[in-house]
Amino acid sequence: DKATDPSIPEENWECIQRFCDRVNADKESSSLAPRLLAHKIQSPQEVEALHALTVLETCVNNCGERFHNEIAKFRFLNELIKVLCPKYYGTWFSEKVKSRVIEIMFSWTVWFPQEVKIRDAYQMLKKQGIVKE
């Protein structure tokens, strides 16, 4: 909650690092953390969603294989897709949040080419015209 506090506009890097440390410290939390983040990413408050996306981006590079495996699953990717698609929550999210989600997903297709599900999800978004360029 502290790392995604919407009342603080700028990133709270100390809290984000503490969150990563806690995820690294305990096996259970590294599969639970993505779900917590997905919930925050889908927040109606733009600042909270943007903070959660920054925490997600930081965790993916700092929180080990279990966390990585969880975000590379459709179970998590679908939560990001719901933010983008008008059929789900897409109409409620600002362009700022949606372009940030696309930016992160695209970076994962580049950094983790071996993750087939990330690539499939991104290809589907392009095919549906949800991701332009």
Binding site: K27, S31, N69, K73, F74, R75, L77, N78, I81, K82, C85, K87, Y88, K117, D120, A121, M124, L125, Q128, I130
Partner: peptide, 15 residues
């Protein structure tokens, strides 16, 4: 100890 590896997942959302 064998670390538990959870491969459960769901299908890609149909948009």
């Amino acid at each position: 100890t064998v670390s538990f590896h959870d491969d459960s997942d769901e299908d890609l959302l149909n948009v």
